[in-house]
Structures are given as C-alpha cells and as structure tokens.
C-alpha cells in the first residue's frame, strides 16, 4: 500500500514511486526521478512507458527544467529545510511563467503552517515527512479565508 499524501485538498494514496539513484528503471508505472538522472539519461527516459515526474528544489531551480516540462506529469519541489523559501518562487514561476499544468508537489521538510502559502503559490499536492499530522495539514488550507495580493490561487 502506498503512502498517504494530500492531493487537491484530499487525503489520497500515492501511486508515484520515487526512484532512488541505484534503482533501475521499472518497465512501467509512475516514477519520480531526480534531476541528475534526467540529465544523464534523458534519451531513454523520454521513451519511458509510464508517467514521469522529476524532483527539483534547492540549487536546482525551476528555470533549469523550463524547456523540458512537456515530459513531466509531476514536478516535486523538495524542501530540505522548511526555512528555504526558494521553492515558493519556483512554484509560481512554473505555474505562471512556464505554464506547467501537471501535478506540483511539495515534498520534504514542510510544516502544516506553510500549507496555505504553498497552496497559493501553486502546489496542489503535499507529501509530508513521516511523523507529520496529515489531518491537521488538511485543515491548514483554511487558515485564512481571504488575502491581499494576487498569486497562483
């Protein structure tokens, strides 16, 4: 059974597989690869039969992959540190500048207290670290009922 995540403001089972560096490419399924793997194997990955996702974040910016977006059904932005706010700008750029329409997922060290802002910046799915309270996170979408400034939503 897959891990539970939040997607479109609901708790659902996740059927994407994060492919670790040493793991070989499966024959099918939905996989999330890291940026290095994409750089090194993009030729074979383009022909992958299942759906493809990629992880960026930190030093790997949204701009790095802006010309490759058509290959990805999912982009995961990893937060190694919850205080690193670059991922918020990456998300807005992907949605508003580069036109990415697929699933935009926040992964890693994120707090429920950040869900509202992340959502406004264009994230529609959230894969919280082990031990985080996913039900509490679900409630955080309604922390505020209104806002002052335009964003993605």
């Amino acid at each position: 059974m897959g891990k539970h995540i939040i997607k479109n403001r609901q708790i659902v089972e996740d059927n994407w597989q994060h492919l670790a560096d040493e793991e070989s490419l499966p024959a099918s399924g939905d996989i999330i690869i890291n940026y290095r793997r994409w750089q090194e194997n993009r030729g074979s990955l383009k022909n992958f039969s299942g759906r493809l996702g990629i992880t960026i974040g930190g030093e790997v910016s949204a701009e790095t992959i802006k010309d490759d977006l058509a290959f990805f059904q999912l982009i995961a932005i990893a937060f190694a540190e919850f205080k690193d706010g670059r991922g918020y700008s990456y998300a807005r750029l992907l949605r508003e500048r580069y036109g990415f329409q697929g699933e935009l997922r926040a992964i890693g060290n994120i707090l429920q207290d950040q869900i509202y802002y992340l959502h406004r910046c264009g994230f529609d799915s959230f894969d919280l670290d082990q031990g985080r309270d996913i039900n509490a996170a679900l409630k955080a979408f309604s922390d505020f009922g209104t806002y002052y400034q335009p964003a993605v939503v």
Binding site: F82, Y88, Q114, Y117, Q149, A151
Partner: peptide, 14 residues
C-alpha cells in the same frame, strides 16, 4: 503593507 502582509511567496526569505 497590504501587499506584503501574508505574501505567500516571500514569507521565508534569506
């Protein structure tokens, strides 16, 4: 003030 209050993109600046 209004623009910067709860600005979703700029709450975790350097």
């Amino acid at each position: 003030r209004q623009w910067s209050t709860f600005h979703p993109e700029f709450a975790y600046l350097p």
